[in-house]
Write a protein that binds this DNA or RNA. Structure first.
Lengths: 248, 248
DNA sequence: CGCAGAATTGATACATCTCAAGCTGGGTGG
DNA sequence: CCACCCAGCTTGAGATGTATCAATTCTGCG
């Protein structure tokens, strides 16, 4: 595994970009010192597998930068994405040996890893870590259930609109945008990855994106650069209530 | 709200049927005393709505007996079940005002409720409750992700087989069965509820159940009483690896 | 330049939905 | 005690959305 030396030595948590959103968000200075002792950085190139389903995991950790996917695969090759890991998201499950999913780096990826045993011990002692992890897990559960509605009941067009609206919303909350209703972002996923997320084929994804473009719901520059002229229109196409602003 | 007096006064936690599986599983005797002070029972009749999506929740709690469903509904009426609540499962989210889902009693239901504020305070003080809740939430997240694969990638026949195998497995772990490979249970859901769980129409559910019956994968007495002569066969039909026994 | 991965587009097949007609079994009122 | 009723379920025929198979077209890069 190649590792970028500028990233694999330990930075100070105080300057960390995900300091206030990750599993360490509630920790005070003392607790950060404890975490620094058991942490190390790892980098992965786009396309690299971080963990194979079933593999033993000797660490847990947070995504610092880049994007990774959580996928499940059936014996015959059918694949479903079950999670999209963005900066500050947590990987791994304390109290379990192996991973239940494949974790794959979609872009170049930097992870802040904690050795599993010490991390688990720390969870016992310092409630701030466990509290934050519970909060994050509950959020993920809500997101997973939201996605169950998308997978089970929405049409292909609604699925695409839902995905775009989620990416747009996240992007808006990260890089704060003028709230003039126009949103611009880059798709972090290939058509195939979108298909795996939405339970579709890549051809259907392509057709529906073309249709949304033809109907003026989105504009495309190249394959990845998307402009949403009217976010409420996109929400309607997603079958969601158009109310409840972008920055909820 | 009608309440059965024999159930709404407080029993002792020590004799509670879900004592060792619910959110209180790790609590010691002292902690149980604390919980007893903030708890009360509520009963619901089959078909009754426990909580409406968006409603303010002044309690959280555990299912003691009976079955409830968690559902999400779109404006045009399409509905997706996002959770099936069995005895010992937890309802509600500490740290959030309203419910995100409809909770409906599928059978007669008894819940052990905790007043929300005191429960949240207790979570701060006694790590055993928060630890157990984290563990349960992680399990639910795994279940939700498993279900995403079912919704996104499985055929109607596989979906039905998956649901039957889950119900069979749960039933086997509750009422322990002879491990001779034959499983018998009652479906706790109507065809329509199964359809909402699986992202299908009730007609498709009915057709696929008929097909599995015709092919000898299951036997039916009446509409609800199911016999599975060969669990591994059912697993194969579900598209799952047939290995990894029933009582995993 | 030209290749390879990614994406688009087209023609057709098929699984599931939709609409519609009956069936079944348990409960109720005459 | 029977006739009726109704929710839940089954089955059928046809419509439709998405998958599948196949042929091009982009796009970035060595």
């Amino acid at each position: 595994m190649l590792q970028d030396e500028t990233l694999t030595h330990n930075h100070h948590c105080g300057e960390c970009p995900i300091r206030h959103k990750a599993v360490c968000a509630r920790c005070d200075t003392d607790e950060l010192v404890q975490l620094e002792e058991i942490k190390y950085y790892r980098t992965f190139e786009a396309g690299q597998t971080v963990i194979w389903s079933g593999d033993k995991m000797d660490f847990v950790g947070s995504v610092v930068s880049g994007i990774a996917t959580l996928t499940q695969t059936m014996e015959d090759g059918r694949t479903q994405m079950v999670g999209l890991l963005l900066p500050s998201d947590f990987v791994g499950r304390p109290g379990r040996e192996g991973s239940a999913y494949d974790v794959v780096a979609t872009t170049d990826l930097v992870m802040c890893c904690f050795r599993k045993k010490p991390f688990e011990q720390m969870m016992e002692g310092t409630p701030h870590v466990a509290q934050r992890l519970l909060e994050m897990t509950l959020d993920e559960l809500d997101a997973a259930r939201e996605w169950m509605l998308v997978l089970g009941r929405k049409t292909a067009r609604e699925k695409i609109a839902s995905l775009l609206s989620i990416i747009a919303r996240r992007d808006a909350s990260l890089n704060l945008r003028p709230a003039n209703g126009e949103l611009v972002f880059d798709l972090p996923l290939t058509r195939e990855a979108m298909a795996d997320y939405l339970g579709l084929t890549l051809e259907t994804v392509s057709r529906q994106i073309s249709a949304l473009k033809r109907d003026g719901v989105i504009h495309l520059e190249g394959k990845r650069h998307v402009t949403v002229p009217d976010y409420n229109r996109l929400m309607e196409e997603a079958g969601d209530d158009a109310d409840g602003g972008i920055f909820a």
